[in-house]
């Protein structure tokens, strides 16, 4: 079985929009991965960001006040 090298090195992100309080801390930490819609609710610009975004995504997860972001390593 072969594994796609890119897929193996990327993260798979989800946002629980019901939890999101719109503080925008994820956007501050990783602006290429997260954005906010017209109601301030966060959404993903990139669900499987490259590992170069790992530190920023970790920061976004740590600073999210409601724990709305989860990452599944691909």
């Amino acid at each position: 079985m072969t594994t796609d090298l890119k897929a193996a090195t990327t993260m798979n992100l989800t946002i629980d929009v019901a939890k999101c309080c719109g503080s925008g801390q994820c956007v501050m930490a990783a602006p290429d991965v997260f954005d906010q819609d017209d109601d301030g609710v966060a959404f993903l610009l990139d669900q499987t960001p490259p590992d170069t975004e790992r530190a920023n995504v970790d920061e976004a997860i740590a600073s999210c006040p409601t724990g709305a972001i989860t990452v599944v390593d691909g």
Binding site: G22, G24, Q36, D39, V41
Partner: peptide, 15 residues
Amino acid sequence: HTRLRRMVAKDFMPK
């Protein structure tokens, strides 16, 4: 709370 917060969250989000 969620409903009320969303009325103003957009006015204070980073952008």
